[in-house]
Structures are given as C-alpha cells and as structure tokens.
Amino acid sequence: MDLDANRSLIAAALERIPGGDRAALQTVYRLTSAKLFGVAIRILGERSEAEDVLQEVYVTVWRKAAAFDAARASPMTWLIAIARNRAIDRLRAGRQNRRMEPIDVAHEVADTAPAADSALENAQDHARLHGCLEGLVAHERAALRGAFFDGNTYDELAERMKVPLGTMKSWIRRAMIKLKSCLKQ
C-alpha cells in the first residue's frame, strides 16, 4: 500500500471522529489495529491483557480525536504513543508478566531490521533513529531497549543489568541527551 496515502487516510479518518462518525473510527481501527496490538503485546507479554488495552486505546481515540493535529504530528506516532502509555499503565497496575531476565550487554542482539508492517510510514525517521542508536555505548542502547520494548522501569533495568539505580539513571539520561543531539544533525 502507498504509505503516504495510508497516512493521509488515517489522518482524514481521525478528523471525522469528533463529529461522531463511527465508520471513521472503524477505518482507523482497520488501518492501525494490527500495529497497535503488536505494540501492546510486546510490552505486556501476553494477548488477553493486550486485547483489553487495545479496546481502551480505541475508546480513548474516540474521545480524544479532537486533540489530534495532523499539521503537528504523524497519526501513527500519536496512536502508538497512546497504545504504549495505556500498555505501560496496565503493566504498572499489575505486577505480573514483567520481563526480568538479566540483560547481557556482551550478547546484546543487534537492532533488528524493521518488521514487515503496514502502517508506519516513516522509514527515513526509523533509519535516522537507528543510526543514532548505533552511536550509543552498548549498555546505553540495551537499557533504552529494555525500557522502550519491555516497558521496564529504572528499578527493573538496574536489576536486570546489575548496576546501582543511580548508575542506570545517568546511563539513560546521558543516552537521551546524545540521542537528541544526534537526531538534530
């Protein structure tokens, strides 16, 4: 599918939702639910919780679609942020299913190629981010991965990587500063 066309289809449908257009929400769901379900499963580690979260996400989209501004944000970025936040809220509310196996930096898996996906339009943005992540020290990159993909907190990352909490905080903060500066270039 033409990705630009896909992006404008999603944005146009989001703009019809505040008028109470259910078919527009259904269009958004059809075009984006597989990506958001993948994101929720990745963070929560299991399907049934992810199904509940997916339901909450689209009910939130129905209520908050008026806040989406196509001139300022990509629709997928906006939707994925809602899905990640809802999944993280769910993860923090329960204590189960945490990914807590140790992270071994020496055997850290290389960043994988983009999965075959239907809805994320910005291959260039991904390539740029990927390049900047490659510029980080391996332990910084591993810590960011644990947070972004597994939904780990500072405490959990410190435990998984066997470092003091203060060390983990400065790794992450330093990595974020480097990322911002690299992405600016």
């Binding site: 993948g38 994101v39 991904h126 740029r128 972004f148």
Partner: peptide, 8 residues
C-alpha cells in the same frame, strides 16, 4: 519510529 521493529 523505533516501534517499526515490532511486527503487526
């Protein structure tokens, strides 16, 4: 954009 690595 990192979420691009997560499969549908």
């Amino acid at each position: 954009p990192w979420a691009r690595e997560i499969a549908d």
